[in-house]
Design a protein around this nucleic acid. Structure first.
Lengths: 199, 199, 199, 199
DNA sequence: AATGAATGAGCCTTCATTCAT
DNA sequence: TATGAATGAAGGCTCATTCAT
């Protein structure tokens, strides 16, 4: 019998190599050969574990989303009030896992290709849907249903906008900066909903 | 006898074809041959008017920025108060010219490739610098210098975040929606600066 | 303790899978992986029982010839006159075993590759030599030696030509049709040899 | 302006190179690179003039059919009686153009791949249809309609069978040999139709 | 005996770029 | 100015084969 269970190991290995390669060479130059070399395996092994390059890239992008989700879930689990829940979502969005250079590169690549790939688009939509749901979940206990949805969209946009800025112009000195900015924005919006700030 | 002035015509023709091709085929599939065909010219002409494909793409992205700038400048020229100026910036950011599908595609492509191209990165930085300057210019007359900078960063992020959302998930029913959302966010932030809302 | 006698089983299993795969995927697409999968065994087993893919294919083609021979020998054994012997050869050539779709595919593949493979060419030559010998054996008792050789060549060609037609255009409604046609041809030629028809 | 009208030249050049390569390396080894090298052109030019390798091979096979047709048409034009017409068809089938080694190889390749390619199958069918029509055309003036069809099928099979034999075992000393054999077969069949031999 | 992991060569195809006309 | 012919370097992918288990 050959080495069994390599599939899981190799797939993870290749996904990580893909992220690294996208970061170092750019999405367009992230060739199968480069990814394989980066993973320290042969050229052909990629197609042993993935149906195609697209498949590997899809899996790669999906792992980004999974990482983010894992962090958010962990933080939400520790939150016990609506306020804490909102904070947890904001904190997760600007968690350490989202500020690596290679994560910036990979997410940007995802965005840059989502419009022409249904599968990638689904990942993007999943991300947005989850973020929105998490935000609404906390907000609904503070403002009405309609307002919660409206506010969630604003906060989500603020989060994404800040993230995009850091991805393109360079990361902030500390993750606390975007967290505070988002917080401030949220508070301002809450006030306008005739409601006390969240904290 | 060479037709004079063809350079300008051809270059514009090719830039527009590039935008259309990026939208229709995706950035990765926007080949020289396809762009040329789309422009209705021969394959080889591209290198007659551009040093390379990269050059054409750079020019293409630059034209996006120029379009945006043109709109912003026109709107700012008509503004006569700080409040109007801020509104002008917001309105321009969500102007008609920014909501075409092909514009979404092209900007996303720009973002997706900026991290690996110094020239493209400069375009992105230029965009951010201008947006920031325009916002600060209006805000400085309402709040202090430090606050103006802080607010500008928030508003810019809100603008970019909303735009990103529309680019990825589909445009809003009306440009007034993101304008209002941005406005609301701005007002909320101004209040927190112990300042009346902008309008 | 290795299972003894597996060799014979596996080899036959793989040869049959090869025929089926050649038929279903075409000769060019009959890869080792596909053949192995078809046989329900692992990828690597093929090289355990065959020196190479070529070896397997050679064995496969040889089995086609063996099948044909088996049928011919059985029929000839039951024949007791020159006429019956000729008929037996003709009948065997258009026997049930030769009219399966997968047999058509495999023989055509053999023909298509014989010119570039000495081993495959030998199989083809063996087939022709046997057919010729069988025909001559019957004919020599009816016409002179030279005529027998001449007639055998014609009849063999008629058999092959009819077979090729069916392989390419689709099989006849009944095996009796090519048998009758061949018979008719044979009779016509015999008459020209100043000889009564074979029956 | 570039060199115009190269398409026709290059296409012919590549088709001829394909035939030569199929003959020299076998169909399976007739790669685009080898064909291009054989034609003395670059690797990539093949896809400038053909949509794909399959396309080139299709065109190649079609040219074989065209060659045969050209010869047959020329001979038929010179024939003035049914007998001469039949002879013309037989002569064309064993004309010089059909006895080159590379023609053998290419036709065999065609046969070997026709079952898995609709386009190639069409070529084969076209060949058979034309041969049949040509034969029937002559025969119908000598025997009844039904008999003409039956005889045509037999003669066509004889022609194909002889050709196949030469393709696989080596060509005859002279083209007159298969012509005479076919003739003899035809005469024998005509006699059985209560009809005088064709000449 | 049997598996499937792993390799590396080679395939078809695409593409930016150059060049003769 | 403008064309499209032509190149050659990759790119993604397939595959026969080897090998550790």
């Amino acid at each position: 019998m050959p080495k069994l269970g390599m599939a899981k190991i190799r797939r993870k290995q290749l996904v990580e190599a893909a992220i690294a390669t996208i970061h170092e060479n750019g999405f367009a130059q992230a060739t199968v050969a480069r990814i394989a070399r980066r993973a320290g395996v042969s050229n052909g092994i990629v197609h042993h574990y993935f149906a195609s390059k697209d498949d590997l890239l899809f899996e790669t992008m999906r792992s980004l989303l999974a990482d983010l989700r894992r962090d958010a879930v962990a933080r939400l689990r520790r939150a016990s009030s609506p306020q804490e829940r909102l904070q947890a979502v904001i904190d997760a969005s600007f968690g350490d896992g989202q500020f690596g250079d290679h994560v910036f590169s990979a997410w940007l690549a995802l965005y840059g290709n989502a419009r022409k790939s249904e599968r990638l688009q689904q990942i993007v939509m999943l991300y947005h849907r989850r973020l929105h749901a998490n935000l609404v979940y906390g907000l609904r206990q503070m403002v009405g249903n309609a307002a919660a949805n409206r506010l969630a969209e604003s906060i989500a946009s603020m989060i994404d906008g800040l993230w995009l800025r850091y991805a393109l112009l360079g990361p902030p000195a500390s993750a606390d900066i975007p967290r505070a900015l988002t917080r401030r924005c949220l508070d301002g919006l809450l006030v306008q909903e005739s409601c006390a700030p969240a904290q």
